[in-house]
Design a binder for these strands. Sequence first.
DNA 1: GCCAACGTTGGC
DNA 2: GCCAACGTTGGC
Length: 150
Amino acid sequence: MQTWLMKSEPEEASIDDLQRLGRLPWVGVRNYQARNFMRDAFQLGDRVLFYHSSCAQPGIAGIARVASGAYADPTQFDPSNPYFDPKSKPEAPRWLLVDVAFERKTTLLPLSEMRLQPELATMALLQRGSRLSITPVSDSEWAFLAQRLT
DNA sequence: GCCAACGTTGGC
DNA sequence: GCCAACGTTGGC
């Protein structure tokens, strides 16, 4: 089983929202590399580290699971939605999503602390200039993180 | 609000 | 297919 880190702005969808709803369609991915991870590499039951971005305390806020295969993100077809993509056609959807299911909250592991850990220096999230909203987490990175996510 | 870094677009 | 211009991300 693989572990992934997925970024979400808590103002839009926080770990508390996921806890309340139990399950969420991960709408709004508009990057081909991130889409391809969901389409080609995600497996049902894969672990998801739920990361809060663009907020006062960026960091890992909880753990979730991949709860569906990839399917068309409906927001790309809705002209009133901020994620609307006029170039995407229903017969050939450009953007996909997966459902994500709540597992548990963790005490927030701040980005600033993650940066201090040599064991995490290889994380895709921490690489210079990395902006990708979905990144893989290696087994050794997860093993280290698991001890700190309480 | 700033700005570095990156991805996408579109003219050629 | 190149690459400059532009838009976006996201930490600070």
